[in-house]
Simulated scan of single mutants.
Amino acid sequence: MTKVLHIHPVSPQPRLLREAVEVLRGGGLIAYPTDTTYALGCSIGEKSALERLIRLRRLDDKHEFTLLCADLSVLALYAKVENPDYRLLKAHTPGAYTWILRGTHEVPRRLMHPKKRTIGIRVPDHAICQALLAEHGEPIMTSTLLLPGDEYPLTDPVDIRNVLDGQVDMILDGGFGGLTETTVISLVDGDGPEVVRQGAGPVESIF
């Protein structure tokens, strides 16, 4: 049975955050709220948790995974970024954007696009996410809680519990989530930003 933690969306309880991080470090899979939608998350090196996520979402081998990061301080470790691109990222983080960048050797191969060797980087503007990342001490592998056959992500914590009970180890209930996913911007080609998906983050200020 999946454990549900009712966590405050503005002032997350440290005790609950520690409990969630214990699950992540133990190889668990969690569902949690972000500044856009609810998401699924696990620790970067946990292969079994990642495989569970892939099965749950029925993702193919070309899916581009995203690292949820507290800030840009870890960027150089996981991604290759040119100075103009870094300035763009700095101006729009934290926020509702996922940035597609070329990954470094620090990123497990199974998290990157198999041919392009790219990875998504995301810095959320959300108290629960930031507190969770601070407690965890490193990025979290994340993917939108959008299940096969659904047009929109799950938003109601009650629905999330009913659907995911027994399929994830923990649900962080931070209230209702959003329906709109992040805006995805690719910075891979070196020709400036390319909008891959328009979502919650405005694109007008990107160009």
Rank of each mutant, 00 (worst) to 15 (best):
T36L: 00
K3S: 07
R18V: 12
L17T: 06
T118M: 14
S11E: 15
D85W: 02
R18W: 09
A70E: 14
Q13R: 05
E106H: 14
S186A: 10
K3G: 01
P193W: 06
E64F: 02
K62F: 15
E19C: 13
D61L: 08
R25D: 07
T144W: 09
R52A: 06
G201D: 00
L89H: 00
L40T: 06
P33N: 10
A91N: 02
E135I: 04
E181V: 13
P153H: 14
G174E: 03
I185N: 13
G201C: 05
R25L: 03
V23L: 08
G95P: 00
P14S: 15
D189S: 11
R109V: 01
T2Y: 11
L89Q: 06
G28D: 04
G201S: 01
L89K: 08
Y38P: 02
L154H: 08
N162M: 06
I160V: 13
D156K: 02
G103R: 08
M112P: 09
E19N: 14
I171E: 00
R102Q: 12
V195I: 09
G28Y: 04
A127N: 01
K80A: 11
S143H: 00
A20M: 07
R18S: 10
N162Y: 01
G45H: 12
S43A: 14
Q130Y: 11
G178R: 13
N162F: 03
L50S: 00
W99E: 04
G199C: 05
I171P: 00
L172S: 05
S43C: 13
T183G: 05
R109G: 01
H113I: 10
F176Q: 10
R117Q: 14
C42V: 10
D85E: 09
D125L: 09
